Amino acid sequence: MRCIVFGAGAVGGLIAAALAPHFETALVARGAQRDAISQHGLRIVGLDGTLSTHRLETSAESGQMAPADIVFVTAKSHAVAAAADAIARSRKPNGMVIFVQNGVPWWYLLQLAPESLPPSHQALVRHFPGCAAGIAYFGGTVTAPGTVQHTGSGKLLLGAALGPADPRLALICKQLDAGPIPVEIAPDLPLALWNKLAVNAALNGIAALTKAPIADILAAPHLRSLLLGIVAEIAQLGASLGHAVDFDLQRQAALIGSNQKSSTLQDMEAGRPIEYDALFAWPQAIAERTDVPMPMLQLVAAMVLQRAKYG
């Protein structure tokens, strides 16, 4: 069975490395990341510090590759819409696409607040009326071109996003569960999404403003209080939709990596666009639709937007 991982950041790199021993695996990567992986292989620094190298077919364009049975889309949420046509071409006619993004993903917003889905995302709606999704609870960071460090020991949870569940999800879980990233079928994928979002949006927002790693945010009383306030707002929003959000700050921080910088902070420091819509704007759109107040998230999100604009 052939897999393509569309996006070679930390999450995509770790998933590609986990797939490679079990499936024919290719990677869509660009720039220095593509060049390094093509020349030296994908290098993974494990949780125990062990270095492994994975030789993968790598290209900047999925159209230059043979189509796949399974396509993991791990590109940043704001990049997925522009890549919709390329993602569709990368799968076989009966191929399965699994979207793994932070925050509120496009397929979930489509179900809850379709009027908030930007017109640019209509190609996703057209191409993928049925798709799967993953919620990544593990952490990683790209430490150099072609090198990814695994920083947190969390799981990858999979499930149906739009349409019925695909039996190939169970095959992926069976093959990968004994590997470095445990993979499971989520008994309730939307609940898993909200459990992660509650902590993820709060941590990303505060980290983007303070430039602090996760451990320092948790150790500072006032920042921790703000963090808990935002988490409570998002948990209330999830509860209004029927999801009993269950979060544990210390546990989730450990799964990501307590000394890890948040993904939003990493993007800002690298001069990349941030995942503002998925982490901040789209949760607020759902809150407006359900009349759930979120003053702390709104304030932090407004400051994050200005920080991203002015540096």
Rank of each mutant, 00 (worst) to 15 (best):
A8T: 06
L19Y: 06
L19K: 01
T25D: 11
Q33Y: 06
R34V: 12
A36Y: 02
G41P: 02
L51D: 15
T53P: 08
T58Y: 07
S62F: 12
S62C: 09
Q64I: 04
M65F: 09
A66W: 08
A79Y: 08
A86P: 06
I87P: 05
P93Q: 05
V97F: 01
V97I: 05
N102P: 08
G103V: 09
G103S: 04
G103C: 07
V104I: 15
W107A: 00
P119F: 10
A123S: 11
V125S: 13
P129V: 08
C131Q: 03
I135S: 08
G139C: 03
G140V: 10
V142H: 03
V148A: 06
L158R: 05
D166W: 03
Q175I: 00
L176H: 06
D177L: 12
P182Q: 04
I185L: 13
P190Q: 05
L191P: 02
W194Q: 00
V199N: 11
N200D: 02
I214L: 05
G229H: 00
V231S: 07
A235M: 10
A239T: 09
Q252F: 15
A254C: 12
I256A: 15
I256V: 14
L265N: 04
A278N: 04
E288T: 14
M294F: 10
Q306C: 05
A308H: 13
